[in-house]
Protein backbone atom coordinates (compact mmCIF):
# COMPACT_ATOMS: atom_id res chain seq x y z
CA UNK A 1 0.00 0.00 0.00
CA UNK A 2 2.27 2.73 1.23
CA UNK A 3 5.50 3.39 -0.56
CA UNK A 4 7.28 2.64 2.66
CA UNK A 5 10.93 3.16 1.84
CA UNK A 6 13.21 1.58 4.36
CA UNK A 7 16.44 3.47 4.64
CA UNK A 8 19.09 2.59 2.09
CA UNK A 9 21.76 4.49 3.95
CA UNK A 10 23.10 1.45 5.79
CA UNK A 11 23.37 -0.63 2.63
CA UNK A 12 25.02 2.14 0.63
CA UNK A 13 27.38 2.83 3.52
CA UNK A 14 28.42 -0.85 3.51
CA UNK A 15 29.06 -0.72 -0.24
CA UNK A 16 31.38 2.23 0.20
CA UNK A 17 33.25 0.55 3.06
CA UNK A 18 33.70 -2.61 0.97
CA UNK A 19 34.95 -0.63 -2.01
CA UNK A 20 37.42 1.25 0.20
CA UNK A 21 38.78 -2.03 1.60
CA UNK A 22 39.13 -3.43 -1.90
CA UNK A 23 41.01 -0.34 -3.08
CA UNK A 24 43.09 -0.35 0.09
CA UNK A 25 42.17 3.28 0.83
CA UNK A 26 40.33 4.95 3.72
CA UNK A 27 36.66 5.76 3.29
CA UNK A 28 36.59 9.06 1.43
CA UNK A 29 34.58 10.97 -1.12
CA UNK A 30 36.86 9.41 -3.72
CA UNK A 31 35.90 5.88 -2.70
CA UNK A 32 32.29 7.04 -2.53
CA UNK A 33 32.31 8.31 -6.12
CA UNK A 34 33.86 5.09 -7.39
CA UNK A 35 31.26 3.04 -5.50
CA UNK A 36 28.47 5.14 -6.97
CA UNK A 37 29.68 4.37 -10.49
CA UNK A 38 29.98 0.65 -9.73
CA UNK A 39 26.57 0.35 -8.06
CA UNK A 40 24.30 2.84 -9.80
CA UNK A 41 25.00 1.99 -13.41
CA UNK A 42 26.11 5.51 -14.27
CA UNK A 43 29.06 6.40 -16.48
CA UNK A 44 30.73 8.61 -13.94
CA UNK A 45 30.48 10.73 -10.83
CA UNK A 46 31.96 14.09 -9.97
CA UNK A 47 31.86 15.85 -6.66
CA UNK A 48 32.26 19.60 -6.52
CA UNK A 49 32.95 21.36 -3.26
CA UNK A 50 32.79 24.93 -2.08
CA UNK A 51 36.18 26.37 -1.37
CA UNK A 52 36.11 29.87 -2.78
CA UNK A 53 32.45 30.60 -3.33
CA UNK A 54 32.50 28.73 -6.62
CA UNK A 55 32.18 24.98 -7.04
CA UNK A 56 35.54 23.30 -7.53
CA UNK A 57 36.18 19.70 -8.49
CA UNK A 58 36.75 17.65 -5.34
CA UNK A 59 36.99 14.35 -7.12
CA UNK A 60 35.93 12.89 -10.45
CA UNK A 61 35.90 9.29 -11.62
CA UNK A 62 36.92 10.21 -15.17
CA UNK A 63 37.91 13.09 -17.43
CA UNK A 64 34.34 13.63 -18.64
CA UNK A 65 33.22 14.37 -15.10
CA UNK A 66 35.92 16.93 -14.64
CA UNK A 67 35.04 18.46 -18.00
CA UNK A 68 31.35 18.74 -17.12
CA UNK A 69 32.13 20.41 -13.80
CA UNK A 70 34.58 22.86 -15.37
CA UNK A 71 32.24 23.73 -18.23
CA UNK A 72 29.54 24.78 -15.80
CA UNK A 73 31.91 27.06 -13.94
CA UNK A 74 33.19 28.51 -17.21
CA UNK A 75 29.79 29.37 -18.66
CA UNK A 76 28.24 30.08 -15.26
CA UNK A 77 25.20 27.87 -15.75
CA UNK A 78 24.16 24.23 -15.65
CA UNK A 79 22.37 21.73 -13.41
CA UNK A 80 25.10 21.71 -10.74
CA UNK A 81 25.11 25.53 -10.70
CA UNK A 82 21.32 25.54 -10.21
CA UNK A 83 21.66 23.00 -7.41
CA UNK A 84 24.40 25.10 -5.86
CA UNK A 85 22.13 28.12 -5.81
CA UNK A 86 18.77 26.49 -5.17
CA UNK A 87 19.18 23.59 -2.76
CA UNK A 88 17.05 21.03 -4.64
CA UNK A 89 18.27 18.33 -7.05
CA UNK A 90 18.31 18.87 -10.83
CA UNK A 91 17.57 15.61 -12.62
CA UNK A 92 18.15 15.90 -16.35
CA UNK A 93 17.29 12.73 -18.24
CA UNK A 94 18.19 14.16 -21.64
CA UNK A 95 20.62 17.05 -22.06
CA UNK A 96 19.77 17.18 -25.75
CA UNK A 97 16.03 17.66 -25.17
CA UNK A 98 14.63 21.07 -26.12
CA UNK A 99 13.69 21.79 -22.50
CA UNK A 100 17.30 21.19 -21.37
CA UNK A 101 18.75 23.21 -24.24
CA UNK A 102 16.38 26.07 -23.42
CA UNK A 103 17.17 25.97 -19.70
CA UNK A 104 20.95 25.98 -20.18
CA UNK A 105 21.53 27.43 -23.68
CA UNK A 106 25.31 27.55 -23.24
CA UNK A 107 26.03 24.52 -21.10
CA UNK A 108 23.64 21.91 -22.56
CA UNK A 109 25.01 21.91 -26.16
CA UNK A 110 28.59 21.82 -24.86
CA UNK A 111 27.80 18.94 -22.50
CA UNK A 112 26.31 16.94 -25.34
CA UNK A 113 29.31 17.78 -27.50
CA UNK A 114 31.77 16.38 -24.94
CA UNK A 115 29.75 13.18 -24.71
CA UNK A 116 27.29 13.45 -21.80
CA UNK A 117 23.64 12.56 -22.38
CA UNK A 118 22.06 12.76 -18.93
CA UNK A 119 23.11 14.46 -15.72
CA UNK A 120 21.74 14.13 -12.21
CA UNK A 121 22.99 16.82 -9.86
CA UNK A 122 22.31 16.28 -6.16
CA UNK A 123 22.78 18.92 -3.46
CA UNK A 124 25.03 18.33 -0.47
CA UNK A 125 23.63 20.90 1.90
CA UNK A 126 22.12 21.52 5.30
CA UNK A 127 19.78 24.43 4.85
CA UNK A 128 21.90 27.48 4.08
CA UNK A 129 25.11 25.46 4.50
CA UNK A 130 26.11 24.60 0.96
CA UNK A 131 28.84 21.98 1.08
CA UNK A 132 28.93 20.71 -2.46
CA UNK A 133 27.18 18.95 -5.31
CA UNK A 134 27.35 15.28 -6.33
CA UNK A 135 26.76 14.91 -10.06
CA UNK A 136 26.11 11.56 -11.71
CA UNK A 137 26.06 11.33 -15.48
CA UNK A 138 25.49 8.89 -18.28
CA UNK A 139 26.57 8.79 -21.88
CA UNK A 140 23.07 7.58 -22.74
CA UNK A 141 19.85 9.52 -22.16
CA UNK A 142 17.26 8.21 -19.75
CA UNK A 143 15.69 8.66 -16.34
CA UNK A 144 16.93 7.10 -13.13
CA UNK A 145 14.43 4.50 -11.95
CA UNK A 146 12.94 4.97 -8.49
CA UNK A 147 15.29 2.52 -6.72
CA UNK A 148 18.39 4.03 -8.35
CA UNK A 149 17.22 7.55 -7.51
CA UNK A 150 16.71 6.56 -3.87
CA UNK A 151 20.19 5.05 -3.72
CA UNK A 152 21.67 8.10 -5.46
CA UNK A 153 20.20 10.32 -2.76
CA UNK A 154 21.65 8.00 -0.11
CA UNK A 155 25.08 8.41 -1.75
CA UNK A 156 24.59 12.18 -1.65
CA UNK A 157 23.61 12.12 2.00
CA UNK A 158 26.68 10.06 2.91
CA UNK A 159 28.94 12.36 0.88
CA UNK A 160 27.46 15.30 2.78
CA UNK A 161 28.20 13.61 6.11
CA UNK A 162 31.80 12.89 5.07
CA UNK A 163 32.38 16.51 4.05
CA UNK A 164 30.71 17.86 7.19
CA UNK A 165 32.96 15.64 9.33
CA UNK A 166 35.92 17.12 7.51
CA UNK A 167 34.66 20.67 8.09
CA UNK A 168 34.18 20.04 11.79
CA UNK A 169 37.63 18.49 12.01
CA UNK A 170 36.19 15.11 12.93
CA UNK A 171 38.02 12.57 10.87
CA UNK A 172 36.59 9.36 12.08
CA UNK A 173 38.60 6.31 11.15
CA UNK A 174 35.48 4.17 11.14
CA UNK A 175 34.12 5.37 7.82
CA UNK A 176 30.73 6.85 7.05
CA UNK A 177 28.37 6.39 9.95
CA UNK A 178 24.92 6.45 8.43
CA UNK A 179 22.88 7.84 11.26
CA UNK A 180 24.83 9.67 13.91
CA UNK A 181 24.17 13.18 12.68
CA UNK A 182 20.60 14.19 13.63
CA UNK A 183 19.91 16.36 10.58
CA UNK A 184 16.17 15.72 10.93
CA UNK A 185 16.06 17.43 14.33
CA UNK A 186 14.84 21.04 13.90
CA UNK A 187 16.49 22.13 17.15
CA UNK A 188 19.92 21.33 15.71
CA UNK A 189 19.29 23.89 12.97
CA UNK A 190 17.77 26.44 15.35
CA UNK A 191 20.83 26.08 17.58
CA UNK A 192 23.08 26.56 14.54
CA UNK A 193 21.32 29.86 13.85
CA UNK A 194 21.70 30.96 17.46
CA UNK A 195 25.40 30.09 17.57
CA UNK A 196 25.91 31.93 14.27
CA UNK A 197 24.52 35.05 15.96
CA UNK A 198 26.48 34.50 19.18
CA UNK A 199 29.81 34.10 17.38
CA UNK A 200 28.97 36.37 14.46
CA UNK A 201 29.95 33.69 11.95
CA UNK A 202 28.23 31.96 9.04
CA UNK A 203 25.99 28.92 9.39
CA UNK A 204 28.71 26.51 8.24
CA UNK A 205 31.14 27.70 10.92
CA UNK A 206 28.43 27.75 13.57
CA UNK A 207 27.47 24.18 12.73
CA UNK A 208 31.11 23.08 12.83
CA UNK A 209 31.52 24.73 16.26
CA UNK A 210 28.47 22.92 17.58
CA UNK A 211 29.68 19.58 16.29
CA UNK A 212 33.20 20.03 17.59
CA UNK A 213 31.86 20.96 21.01
CA UNK A 214 29.51 17.97 21.04
CA UNK A 215 32.42 15.71 20.06
CA UNK A 216 34.81 17.17 22.64
CA UNK A 217 32.29 16.82 25.44
CA UNK A 218 30.93 13.49 24.23
CA UNK A 219 27.46 15.04 24.42
CA UNK A 220 24.93 14.06 21.75
CA UNK A 221 24.44 16.92 19.29
CA UNK A 222 20.67 16.89 19.91
CA UNK A 223 21.19 17.39 23.65
CA UNK A 224 23.67 20.22 23.15
CA UNK A 225 21.30 21.85 20.63
CA UNK A 226 18.40 21.59 23.09
CA UNK A 227 20.54 23.34 25.72
CA UNK A 228 21.46 26.13 23.31
CA UNK A 229 17.85 26.65 22.25
CA UNK A 230 16.70 26.67 25.89
CA UNK A 231 19.46 29.25 26.56
CA UNK A 232 21.13 27.03 29.12
CA UNK A 233 24.34 27.14 27.07
CA UNK A 234 25.81 29.77 24.80
CA UNK A 235 28.92 30.14 22.70
CA UNK A 236 31.24 33.06 23.09
CA UNK A 237 34.11 34.22 20.91
CA UNK A 238 36.49 34.35 23.86
CA UNK A 239 35.65 30.85 24.90
CA UNK A 240 32.35 29.39 25.86
CA UNK A 241 30.45 30.71 28.84
CA UNK A 242 28.49 28.14 30.81
Amino acid sequence: MARYTTSRLAQVSRWIAEEAVELGVPVSVDALCRTAVARLGVSGAVLTVDTSGWPEVGCATDALGERLAELQVTVGEGPAVDVWRGGGPALVADLDAPSSQARWPMFAPLAVEVGAASLFALPLCVGAIRVGVLSLYRVEAGHLDVATLTDSLAFAELALRLLLDEQAGLNKAGGVAEDVLPLHNPQVHQATGMVAAQLDVGMADAFAHLRARSFAEQTPLSDLAADVVARRRRFDRDGELP
Partner: peptide, 23 residues
Protein backbone atom coordinates in the same frame (compact mmCIF):
# COMPACT_ATOMS: atom_id res chain seq x y z
CA UNK B 1 11.88 14.36 -5.72
CA UNK B 2 13.22 17.70 -6.96
CA UNK B 3 10.38 19.61 -5.29
CA UNK B 4 10.31 17.70 -2.02
CA UNK B 5 14.09 17.75 -1.56
CA UNK B 6 14.12 21.49 -2.16
CA UNK B 7 11.23 21.95 0.26
CA UNK B 8 12.88 19.86 2.97
CA UNK B 9 16.03 21.93 2.66
CA UNK B 10 14.04 25.18 2.70
CA UNK B 11 12.50 24.06 5.96
CA UNK B 12 16.03 23.69 7.40
CA UNK B 13 16.89 27.21 6.19
CA UNK B 14 13.80 28.48 8.01
CA UNK B 15 14.94 26.73 11.22
CA UNK B 16 18.42 28.25 10.93
CA UNK B 17 16.93 31.70 10.34
CA UNK B 18 14.61 31.27 13.33
CA UNK B 19 17.63 30.57 15.52
CA UNK B 20 19.50 33.58 14.16
CA UNK B 21 16.53 35.90 14.70
CA UNK B 22 15.71 34.45 18.14
CA UNK B 23 19.25 35.15 19.31
Amino acid sequence: TEQLQAALNSRVIVEQAKGLVAE
